[in-house]
Simulated assay, not measured.
Amino acid sequence: MKAVLGKYGDNIHLRKKNSIVHYLKRDFLLYVLLLLPMAYLIIFRYAPIYGVLMAFQDYNIFEGINGSEWVGLDVFKFIFEQNSFYRALKNTLILNFLDLIAGFPAPIILAILLNEIRHVRFKKVTQTILYLPHFLSWVIIGGMVYLMFSSGGMANSVLSSIGIGNIEFLSQKTNWLIMYLAIGVWQSAGWGTIIYLASIIGINKELYEAADMDGCSRLRKIWHITLPGIKPTIIILLILQIGRMLSIGFDRPFVMGNSLVSEYSDVISTFVYRIGIGSGDFSQATAVGLFQSIVGLVFLLGANYIAKKIGEQGIW
């Protein structure tokens, strides 16, 4: 009888230990610290989801969401009939795809090269220089690009002085596209190396020591140890990048674009700005944003599914 009661008492004690109240009392300060980020997520990430309803309304800013007329999918039908939307969609996919090709390998290569540098001071200075562009806003970068590469900029002044003549870096479509990609890589590649350097540091050093004993060259160690060691990180970041194929920042194309290259620079974010802020049509802007999010989710799930099918580790 005592054994049964003792076992029953132990079960009660175990349930109490596993209860929410027990954890709240034990980790009270941790939960208090969690309140601020949770409040941020609820206010700025989840509460605005209510605004998605505007995509299905003829939204009136004075009537609000509750007072606006419901129109179903009419807003989406109207958007899909516009040629300007398909141009923005095409440009978004093209620019993101080219960014993926040009920009995704850059931080991997930089991280491997930095890892191979043996001079500590030179390595630190190089890392700092590579990280700096990430902290500059695109407005500042756009001003620098204009001063350097406009028709009367520094680059064309140098080219003219040596007899080559002016090159339209920012007003000729192909040249603008090259500049757009090059400046994007310059701005983001250094910051992206942080993730890959952290992944490289986690590789077992004994593998490199064993490779040295076998007489492997640096290139062989990179190919057979470093790259396989950071492969899971590469796959995860690639999946996330593919998931953002339909999402593009507003600052970069808006600052670097102009009327002469609008055939390439007009993307979904500038399209939303033009119809949402410029024309005051919040229903259309919300509908485009919702379409963008749904397609991005499909891309993300598809990339994760393919990665798992070929035997790689996905993001979940």
Rank of each mutant, 00 (worst) to 15 (best):
N66F: 00
E81G: 05
W176C: 07
V272M: 08
L14P: 01
D251L: 11
A39S: 14
K308Q: 15
W138F: 02
P232A: 04
K17H: 12
L300F: 07
E63K: 15
P228R: 10
F299R: 04
E206G: 08
V21A: 14
T174Q: 13
L34P: 01
I108P: 02
P253W: 04
L53S: 12
L130D: 01
H134I: 08
I306D: 12
Q313R: 02
L177V: 11
H134P: 00
I101E: 01
L24D: 03
G153C: 08
S171E: 13
I268P: 11
A88E: 07
E209A: 04
N96H: 06
F78E: 14
G67S: 08
N11W: 10
V255D: 00
S160Q: 15
I112A: 01
L35M: 15
D251M: 09
I129T: 06
M213Q: 07
E312D: 15
W316S: 14
L300W: 06
K308D: 14
P228D: 09
L237Q: 10
I222M: 11
L197K: 01
F76L: 15
I277P: 13
Q187H: 13
K123Q: 14
T128I: 04
K308G: 15
Q284L: 13
R15L: 14
I61S: 10
S150Y: 05
L29A: 14
S188D: 03
P105R: 03
L260F: 10
M148T: 13
G103H: 00
I12W: 10
S68P: 03
L246Q: 05
G278V: 11
G184S: 13
L246W: 10
R218I: 11
L300M: 11
S68I: 02
V272T: 09
V71R: 08
Y50T: 13
S262T: 12
L132S: 03
I49M: 14
V272L: 12
W316E: 10
S84L: 13
M148N: 10
I275W: 07
P107F: 05
Q172D: 15
L240T: 00
L159H: 04
F250V: 00
T193S: 15
A111G: 09
S279A: 15
V255T: 07
H22S: 11
I20Q: 02
V139C: 00
N91P: 09
